[in-house]
Write a protein that binds this DNA or RNA. Sequence first.
DNA 1: AACGAAAATGGTAACGCTATCATTCTTGTT
DNA 2: AACAAGAATGATAGCGTTACCATTTTCGTT
Lengths: 324, 324
Amino acid sequence: MATMKDVAEAAKVSVITVSRVINMPDKVKPATRYKVEQEMKALGFTPNIAAKNLVSRRTGIIDVYIPESIDLSNPFAMHFITGISEVLSKQMYSFLILRNRTHKHLCDGYIITGLLKDEIDDFYRYALENKRPIVLFGHTELLSVNCIDVNNVTGASMAVDHLINLGHKKIAMINVDEDKDYTIDRLAGYHKAFKDNGLPIPGNSVINAINNTNGGYEATLRLLKEEKFSAIFCATDTIALGAIRAARDLGKEIPKDLSIVGFDGLGHQLLANPVITTVQQPVFRIGSMLAELLLDQINGDECSIKKLVEPELLDGNSTAVIRE
Amino acid sequence: MATMKDVAEAAKVSVITVSRVINMPDKVKPATRYKVEQEMKALGFTPNIAAKNLVSRRTGIIDVYIPESIDLSNPFAMHFITGISEVLSKQMYSFLILRNRTHKHLCDGYIITGLLKDEIDDFYRYALENKRPIVLFGHTELLSVNCIDVNNVTGASMAVDHLINLGHKKIAMINVDEDKDYTIDRLAGYHKAFKDNGLPIPGNSVINAINNTNGGYEATLRLLKEEKFSAIFCATDTIALGAIRAARDLGKEIPKDLSIVGFDGLGHQLLANPVITTVQQPVFRIGSMLAELLLDQINGDECSIKKLVEPELLDGNSTAVIRE
DNA sequence: AACGAAAATGGTAACGCTATCATTCTTGTT
DNA sequence: AACAAGAATGATAGCGTTACCATTTTCGTT
């Protein structure tokens, strides 16, 4: 493997000039630069990342924390990771997907997602100690943690708006049974839609469930036993899946007898029946934005960004105009 | 950040002894080892990977080549990557997903997938030059390339067997229009099933298609125009999706009028109707096996392994007993 | 107690790169 | 032609680890 020394000898310059051709080409006279570049090509020179990292005190690795509760095999997670990967690999960074917080490891920065408030605080302290920047998919008030989140409030309100526009008034919500920002915000969006449309916020219409298909299934059974709802807004697509199964088991046809909207945009609904109407999070874009933000921070940009991106309503066929 | 020197001073030993505690603990007297370990904990010492890599001439990075033609967002790809990630991160290796072959980059080894025969040859030459091991998801006769592949022959024959057992005799196949090992093998498996069941291999029953839903759609229209088939074996689930749409557009009910089997196991068919009967590849396991094999090779094991893993038939409801 | 072999430990030089400061070469101005 | 100021280049040290060889310690044997 050719080193800078080899290139330097071949081009009859010093190693440091070769280094400059790579890192600050403007500082090298065009003629010298050309000669060096020719020799680099001829020798098939590739810089040794380990050496570079050693001297610049970097590892070249970004830790991506995704808790085990998030299924990596769903397209939602994958798009996110692909977005990150796209940006990082261009900058010769590589990344490690870590599944639990105890797996501590030296890296240049963290992309974290899906953690609870106090977990983020822990992380923040740990990262501050090591002077490593953090970016977060989500939201926190902690300084020097750049965040990007989907606007869960407007997202949820779009979903419920859609139902209201179809004539629904008795709209229930199945929320996720966890104290996270997104659950609070989606609930707020649910309320907002009623308010925006000049409707009273219904009582006894929100029920909590564990975020899996079973949770959605059972919540729906409970929900439809007591009150008569014509539509359900599910805080996640996974819950919506369970809701649809439960409704069918109760003999209801979807969307004729019951409209259902989800949230997330799991994708791959190719042969699904019904295709769930859902609020899609642009996770690919969020992943790449977070990676860019993190690299900026690593390179010394002291910006503090708390950004919300707007999701999009994907109309499927799990919703219909209410029957009179 | 604490270095070995700090630990050495604190424990009143030399740096090299600290190094030995980490890399060859047996060579250090228990009392010394204990003292060093205590100090490592107290100082929160983590070895500097860059320095380790520099001196041991490694990069700590594995390049994973997945051609752009493979959609990273499908669960199939994701399980594969997760399998790789699981193994590598335990050994403090990290990985880069590369999407085209021109993106050449120094690494400790390659995991490659989805390449054509001559592309593998190219790769092989390049990797040999750099003395970097390769493992392949697929098959090749090249020495020192360890391969793991799904047994596409038995997989395809399982699928067709299943149809034959349901009473089907006029079984068509839609194969992928590419000259890859898996297409050849799945075709061979199709033939094998007839032979195993003592049936004659039908003529004019195999048609090629581009590997996407449109390809499957159009191939099915062509197929059903001429001959009367009661079942179709699709070489991929993606083609099967298109086939189902085409059949429906021709007014056929599935599985009543036409049985369809796919191959791959894309997953996430939660609300799908029908759920495609398919041959599932254990991609997670293949990913982790490949990663382990590669690490073994990097550590000097000169083993040559060409292994086939057996896929599994997942029964959905896109197949039914033939109507008389 | 003296000796030798084996175990345990240490000193020093790399690994390939960049930072820092020093030196040489250009160029424009008087 | 002389000079200053800036551009271009170079010499050297050091990043944190391991490899190699040298030295010291330990322990059983005579």
